[in-house]
Design a protein around this nucleic acid. Structure first.
Lengths: 192, 192
DNA sequence: ACCCGTGCCTTTACGCAGTAAGGTGCAGTC
DNA sequence: GACTGCACCTTACTGCGTAAAGGCACGGGT
């Protein structure tokens, strides 16, 4: 009989960075960021907590950075035709959906100094605006305005409803605010 | 000799909610959110950590909520004349300045379910837009768009510079994005 | 056949966090 | 002068992140 390596003998796939991050995301989505601890994460992976450090030497810092990258890296796809507004609307809607799907990670996205995670996304937006006819600087500013708006508005939404106020249609509100920015961008584009 | 109460005998003003929050804010501003602990806060107030719980029964939760209220409540002043755009610009600039002055608290503003802290601010913006001639719903949407933008953009700024990219003039970028939204709002106001 | 790294995981232990529970001393009231 | 309540302290518990060291199976050189 062929002897399996000890890890496989415990009926458990070997640890990977990817598996660790997925398990962490599962905990955060299901129980909240506050319940993500190294020990619990170890339990979820059927491993002692310290085993994680072999794959992530920087420990929890590295884990949280990994979560941010996993959720926040989300570049926009360039428009098929001329309709750059449509492309931006689609990106914004999808990005908001992703952030709300992993709402526990949003504080990390906002907080952590992990610029690389957002710079890809910002670059894709900038490129779309540049091709729409905005000057270089205006395109970069517009890209960050969009990114800031989507993140900020989603954060406001996830803070929960103010008691004593009429319930809000956050979908409609998000779209309305987005159109404000798109209107402003249109007035600065080559083809307004 | 008149015997002073023990508290005064230690040359220390009595504990108050206000003094506690101010000391906490001082720690966060000076050393970062991560270094705000109940024990350190107690030291700063020359008091044992557990004394704080007498004034804040919900402990650290209540303390953090207090910090958010202290920083994030910042209603806009209505315009002196007709120039609502100017009033909004002034509010946005001042609010951003306040957030960057207490950058350690921003993660809490974004994260914590403390809706009351922002609803006053949002209401003041909504009122300005309503008087500028926007319909009720559009005014509320616009107010949240502004709030979301300012918070989101400021959060992006405080994440720090992406290495390998040209240094950003965040003041100019903030203003540029703000003008995008103001342009969009103007096209929907009674007096565009 | 033996040895010895190397990779992956476990064991143990330390310091610091938040806070529950109960104690202490003073001020004011009756 | 006993009683009551406020403000603060003492002690102790659980859980956290992680440094340090140990074990253990594999693979390859000799």
């Amino acid at each position: 009989m062929v002897r399996q390596p000890s890890v496989a003998a415990q009926n458990r796939p070997p640890l990977t960075r990817e598996r660790i991050i997925e398990a962490a995301l599962h905990i955060v989505d299901g129980q909240g960021l506050g319940r993500l601890t190294m020990r619990r994460l170890g339990d979820a992976l059927q491993v002692e907590a310290m085993a994680i450090y072999h794959h992530m030497p920087r420990g929890k810092e590295e884990l949280l950075d990994g979560l941010v990258s996993h959720v926040a890296v989300f570049p926009a796809r360039p428009p098929a035709g001329e309709d750059w507004r449509r492309a931006l609307r689609e990106w914004a809607t999808a990005y908001r959906a992703r952030l709300t799907a992993h709402s526990g990670v949003l504080p990390l996205v906002v907080t952590r100094r992990n610029p690389a995670a957002l710079s890809d996304t910002a670059a894709s937006l900038r490129e779309i605006l540049r091709r729409a006819g905005l000057p270089e600087g205006a395109a970069a500013d517009g890209a960050h305005a969009l990114l800031g708006y989507v993140i900020g508005q989603t954060a406001l939404e996830l803070r929960g409803p103010s008691p004593g106020e009429p319930p809000t249609d956050w979908d409609a509100r998000f779209t309305a605010g987005l159109e404000l920015i798109l209107t402003g961008l249109s007035s600065r584009a080559r083809r307004p």
